[in-house]
Simulated assay, not measured.
Amino acid sequence: MATTLICLLAFAVSFDKAQFLALLKTPQRQTGVLCCALVMAILWQVKAGILPFLDIHILAITAVTLVLGWRLSLLSTLLASLLHYAFAESSIEFFSFWLLTGIIPVYISYALFAICYHYLPRHFFIYIFVCAFICAGLVAASKIVLTSFYYWSLGQYDWQTLQYNYLFYSVIMWFPEAMLNGMAITLMITYRPHWVRTFYDQEYLDR
């Protein structure tokens, strides 16, 4: 129940009437949200894991957040989570899955982007290597750490089991996550910069 309330509150905070009305009126935005949801849902199917509830997979959340912005990214992760549950068996309760795999990573991704935007030089390579590459790796590691704490707090697993069977993947998964997100953002801001909501030509290129 608490997880459900947290998810609904986090999604309610993201609601912006003007932005969602623009989404309804703009087919290109609708396509972007749906395509991102489909890509995430497919990537989440390619997973590994030793124990129930503790799946390991590519998130792609950081790239989606940079492309759509945090508000539409939350909507996209909701659609991806629904697709995941519609076409794949999952042992994790829906709202727990959406919270740990979608909502929290989106908030972390956007918070890291905001920190980079305000405190680091606004440069093309800063955007690629810090906002996309490094931040994506941090998000992947954070997701595994937070998931470990979540199931430890529920008493589902003891800490030693989590440490040796799941938590150590935070060291391994950061690089493929960082590489995939970094490559995706590099391609998009090179060939379709207008698709990336958080990339501003006049700030990142005129330097």
Rank of each mutant, 00 (worst) to 15 (best):
A10Y: 01
A37S: 08
Y150S: 01
D158W: 08
A111I: 10
L21F: 05
T198W: 01
P105F: 01
F124Y: 15
Y117R: 15
I172K: 09
A136V: 07
L8V: 10
C36E: 06
L68T: 06
R29Y: 14
L112P: 09
R197Y: 09
I185K: 11
I56R: 02
I134D: 02
P193M: 06
Q45N: 12
M40I: 07
L180G: 12
L8H: 04
S14H: 10
L38E: 07
T101I: 10
F20N: 11
P193N: 07
Y200L: 15
Y110H: 14
A136R: 03
W98V: 12
A111L: 15
V171E: 08
A12D: 10
L162W: 00
L82I: 15
A132F: 06
F95G: 03
G182K: 06
R29P: 02
A132N: 04
A18C: 02
I134Y: 05
L180Y: 09
A136I: 05
P176E: 13
P27H: 07
W174C: 12
E203F: 12
L187Q: 00
F87M: 10
S76E: 11
V139T: 10
F15V: 15
A60V: 06
N181Q: 00
L5F: 13
F168I: 08
L100Q: 08
D55N: 13
A88N: 13
L79H: 01
L51D: 02
S81H: 00
P105N: 00
A37L: 00
S96K: 08
T3G: 00
V106A: 01
L51V: 01
T77D: 03
L180R: 07
R29A: 09
S76N: 09
T190C: 15
L54Y: 00
D158R: 12
I134V: 15
A63N: 07
Y85P: 04
L187W: 01
A18S: 12
I172E: 06
I103R: 06
Q30C: 09
T147S: 12
Q19H: 11
Y85W: 11
G155L: 00
Y157I: 08
F113Y: 15
M1Q: 12
Q160M: 07
G155N: 01
L38G: 14
F129G: 07
Q19R: 14
F87I: 11
M183R: 10
T3V: 10
L21N: 11
A60N: 02
